[in-house]
């Protein structure tokens, strides 16, 4: 349904996208995962015909978005990251304006607005001015604007960043319903849990290209192994954890042991399967080491991300915090 081929885009000397290719099957809920600055927003802006790529091809429902942008816009709903809303208008007036821009006939539009008000629980405040809305209300209104013309493709750029739990739950539920009703949904996020919970398939973006692609379970299975977090004491010192690391490293079935300094020198292990846990306990017992806590889990998307990029998503986020230039980014978004 959505097809991006070898897209490259640079802002001056900064490369945002570097040969990005993406295929989103029709009727799927597809996640775009990556840290800030990975190129998610740029990719979505190109897909939505707001930005022309330096190189590459974009097709939506078989239509070339660079040649026939208007046909693509008719089929596409876009919920942007920075909600641009006219604070002076009421939510209902915003929706009416949006409907006119998509050339909907008045009676149809009125019914459609009423339906979306109920679907997204906007009845209590839709006739208030947008300037008084909370972040969650704005995002719901924006989702409604994106759905007004019943697009076959819905694109959302980080739709739940900073939202209250209720608004997030409403949006998740609607996205699932949309997918079930046959709409292709593409959303970007830097929340692992969100993509894990929602997406049928996902692509991990880093440095402007796709570095891993598949369904969440596929990706996790491909990674293999179970994760074990072990503490011999609530807070160990460096020496003790180094000792434990030595003891466990040679253990059969243990692939990797890492000391997590940030978490009281706890130990993060990758093991072959549940059976290894018993061996671990025996080994610790023999070395006369206590066990304060031991928890085991399947690999998460964070582990997938770590494997693909060599760092955790959190670390990647922190790396770009000081480097980003909000002023320059606003300029990129401005016509």
């Amino acid at each position: 349904m959505i097809q991006l081929d070898q897209i490259s885009k640079a802002y001056g000397s900064v490369t945002a996208l570097d040969g990005l290719s993406l295929r989103v099957p029709a009727g799927s809920l597809y996640g775009l995962l990556g840290p800030n600055g990975a190129g998610k927003t740029t990719a979505l802006r190109i897909l939505c015909t707001l930005l022309a790529p330096d190189r590459g091809a974009v097709r939506v429902a078989g239509i070339d978005a660079l040649q026939q942008p208007r046909q693509v816009r008719e089929r596409l709903g876009y919920v942007a990251q920075e909600v641009a809303i006219d604070k002076i208008l009421t939510g209902r007036e915003m929706l009416r304006l949006q409907g006119a821009l998509y050339h909907l006939a008045t009676p149809h539009l009125r019914q459609r607005i009423q339906y979306l008000i109920e679907l997204l629980g906007m009845g209590g405040w839709i006739d208030r001015r947008c300037g008084t809305y909370s972040g969650g209300m704005r995002r719901r209104l924006d989702l409604a604007s994106g759905l007004l013309h019943q697009p076959s493709v819905l694109v959302l750029d980080e739709p739940t960043v900073g939202l209250d739990i209720e608004s997030r739950a409403v949006i998740w539920q609607v996205l699932r319903q949309l997918r079930d009703a046959g709409t292709t949904v593409l959303l970007s996020s830097h929340y692992l849990e969100e993509i894990d919970a929602l997406a049928d398939r996902l692509a991990i973006l880093d440095g402007g290209r796709v570095i891993a692609e598949g369904s969440p379970s596929e990706l996790k299975r491909a990674l293999g192994g179970d994760r074990v977090t072990l503490r011999v004491r609530e807070f160990s010192d460096e020496m003790e954890s180094a000792l434990v690391q030595q003891v466990l490293q040679g253990c059969p079935g243990v692939r990797q042991v890492v000391v997590n300094r940030a978490q009281g020198h706890s130990l993060n292990l990758v093991v072959d399967g549940e059976a290894v846990i018993e061996t671990l306990r025996q080994q610790l017992n023999q070395a006369q080491l206590p066990v304060f806590s031991l928890s085991q889990s399947r690999p998460s998307l964070d582990d997938v991300y770590l494997q693909a990029t060599g760092r955790t998503l959190m670390d990647a986020e922190l790396e770009v915090v000081g480097v980003r230039d909000p002023k320059a980014e606003r300029k990129q978004a401005m016509r």
Binding site: L50, A84, Q98, Y102
Partner: peptide, 10 residues
């Protein structure tokens, strides 16, 4: 960014 909203519309 309101202009962008207009520019994604057909």
């Amino acid at each position: 960014g309101f202009l962008n909203r207009l520019l994604v519309a057909p």
